[in-house]
Nucleic acid binder design. Sequence first.
DNA 1: GTGATATCATACATATCTGAACTAGATGGC
DNA 2: GCCATCTAGTTCAGATATGTATGATATCAC
Lengths: 138, 138
Amino acid sequence: MAGTERTGLFAVLHASSVLEGRVEARLSDVGLSLAKLAALHHLTAAGESLPLGQLADRLACVKSNVTQLVDRLEADGLVNRTGDPNDRRSRLAVLTDAGRFAYTQGSQIKMQAERELFGVLTAEETDKLHELLGKLQR
Amino acid sequence: MAGTERTGLFAVLHASSVLEGRVEARLSDVGLSLAKLAALHHLTAAGESLPLGQLADRLACVKSNVTQLVDRLEADGLVNRTGDPNDRRSRLAVLTDAGRFAYTQGSQIKMQAERELFGVLTAEETDKLHELLGKLQR
DNA sequence: GTGATATCATACATATCTGAACTAGATGGC
DNA sequence: GCCATCTAGTTCAGATATGTATGATATCAC
């Protein structure tokens, strides 16, 4: 959408995709994406493991997406699937050591990128931005 | 990412995906997506047709994406591919009557949705939002 | 207990996007 | 004219997302 009029909607979508691209580029240095990092974040926050359905809820996406995301994380060696003894329908995604390490790395990269990107705004501007974005979603 | 802290970055990404989802939902009533609408927009603005490479430039995406997007638009009957007599490597995406009609429809839906979504902001707020998003992309 | 129903995860089809490899065709230097 | 190189588009593999359908298991009502 380069060279487009940047109407209200496209201004937001475009800014979002630019920021996302910048952070993704840095995360790719350690083999992570925002999607993977978000999953690792929720697993970490939940204390190492979560049933896939819970993970889907926390990622605010459908379960079929989590199935595939965890497939990729498992292929990367960052999580394992284990069965839930209490409910045999359920499968837990469990962080591996590599997953914990990747989360630490990725988390710092993300925070650093965020500091740099948002460093161009004053605290008041950041607050205002949050306020305006919040209104748009009511 | 529901229930997440909504840090600076995620606030923007989340707001963006919410807005995108709302508009996509309405566009889907006429069988369009934002990606398809954007393509139709550039074809219309260029006077009905464009070489695929040019379309890729204007959509700010890679050519392989346009190949597939035009595949889908062609399957929908909204554009046709024709050869360029001046350069036989090149293929033009040409709007069909159905494509023109879909663009008119989709365009109005998008504008209407945009009016509603951004109607919650005053003109000054919208300006401020654009200003802040602009700064983030420097 | 058993049968209807709900829930968990997966499989599959589809949409969108990227980047790398490839093909066909254009072009410039010699 | 002919070869090296550039360009246009496609193809393919992969990441991310949705929604539908399915199979296995739980659970509830009876």
